Simulated assay, not measured.
Amino acid sequence: MDPYVNIAPFYDLEHSNFVDDIDFYLRHIHADPILEVGVGTGRVMVPLLQAGFEVWGVDTSAAMLAVARERVANFDQAHLIHGAVDDLPPGASFGTILLPLNLLWHLRDLQQQRRFLATTRDLLAPGATLLVDLSNPLTLADRGARGELRERLSHLSPDADVHGWSSCWDDEAEERLYLSLVFDEARDDGSLRRVSSKLELRYLYKGEVELLLWLTGFRVCSLYGSYDLQPFSSHSPNILVIAKVDDGLTR
């Protein structure tokens, strides 16, 4: 079941003002076509299109893609596919592949993450770049969470008031977050609506990311701890990797 089917209309209310990653991506994208895996509602795709790039977006959520299709309808160089990377056209090849905002966490275990990265490698053109954007588990807001309720969103407008909460359980032994999301919408006509969803996320530490990339034939060119290119430390908010295919290595 699509975990975003109920919450897709509220996703951009929480994330639309988050633009810190966009400049980082644009700084490190030097070739298209670009493949954004987990394109979601098109939040990242639109500024890439506005910069003149050809962008392909793939996502398993039909609900999120419905929002994205509306946002990119006027761009001829936009291509959206419902499915996984295996559903791309035969022979597809990309100058840049972008794995944004914890995309890798949505894969259930290390085996799936490794298979996915191996498939991704085969989609890169010679000399192409892989960009990986992850949160640092050591500084997560939900690190060590035990089901506490946390407010995520309060959006007031003439048409509706929307409030969002989350409750998370951090299984540190298995490196998994069990996240419950709830959004309440009160419309100006007096109607009320509550929607909810649950996500299971398998987070990764820096060493695991580097090992997975090495095992799947990538060479890490740069690794940063923030969007303003600070070196990684245990206190960094992010794990940001720029990698290329390393054809000279055997595993």
Rank of each mutant, 00 (worst) to 15 (best):
T96E: 10
F75N: 08
D59T: 13
L49D: 08
L98G: 05
P100N: 14
L65S: 01
F75Q: 06
V55R: 11
A73I: 12
D76L: 07
L80Q: 13
V67K: 05
D59F: 14
L49M: 08
H79R: 15
A73R: 15
A51V: 03
V72L: 06
A66Y: 04
Q77A: 14
V44D: 07
H82D: 02
A62L: 11
D76Q: 14
G83E: 03
G57C: 14
L88H: 08
D59W: 11
A51F: 01
F94L: 13
S61I: 13
N102W: 13
W56P: 06
A68H: 04
A62E: 15
L49V: 06
G57K: 13
A78G: 07
A66K: 14
G83S: 01
A78E: 06
D87V: 02
S61R: 12
A68Y: 11
P89F: 00
G83C: 00
A68G: 07
N102D: 15
R71H: 15
P47C: 05
T60G: 09
V67G: 05
V72C: 07
F75A: 06
T96N: 08
N74F: 05
V67F: 01
T60K: 09
D86A: 07
A68K: 10
G91F: 04
F53D: 05
V55A: 12
Q50V: 10
V67A: 05
W56Y: 15
A78V: 02
L99I: 07
T60Q: 12
L101V: 15
G91H: 00
G83F: 00
F94K: 11
R69D: 08
G52S: 04
S93K: 14
A92H: 03
A63T: 09
P47H: 03
I81M: 09
D59Y: 12
N74E: 14
L80P: 04
M45Y: 06
T60E: 10
R71F: 05
G83I: 01
L65Y: 02
M45T: 12
L98A: 05
L98Q: 04
V44E: 01
F94N: 10
G57R: 11
E70P: 00
M64K: 05
F75I: 07
G52N: 03
N74P: 03
P47F: 07
S61T: 10
P90F: 06
L49W: 06
A73H: 11
T96D: 08
Q77K: 15
T60R: 09
M45V: 05
A73K: 15
A68L: 09
A63W: 13
V58M: 13
Q77G: 00
E54K: 13
S93A: 14
A51Q: 11
V72D: 08
V58G: 14
G57A: 12
G57F: 10
H79L: 03
V85E: 02
A84I: 01
G57M: 11
V67D: 00
L88C: 04
F75K: 02
G57T: 10
W56D: 09
A84R: 12
G95V: 08
A73M: 03
R69H: 09
G57H: 11
Q50S: 15
V55T: 10
G57S: 12
H79G: 07
P89W: 04
N102H: 11
V85F: 02
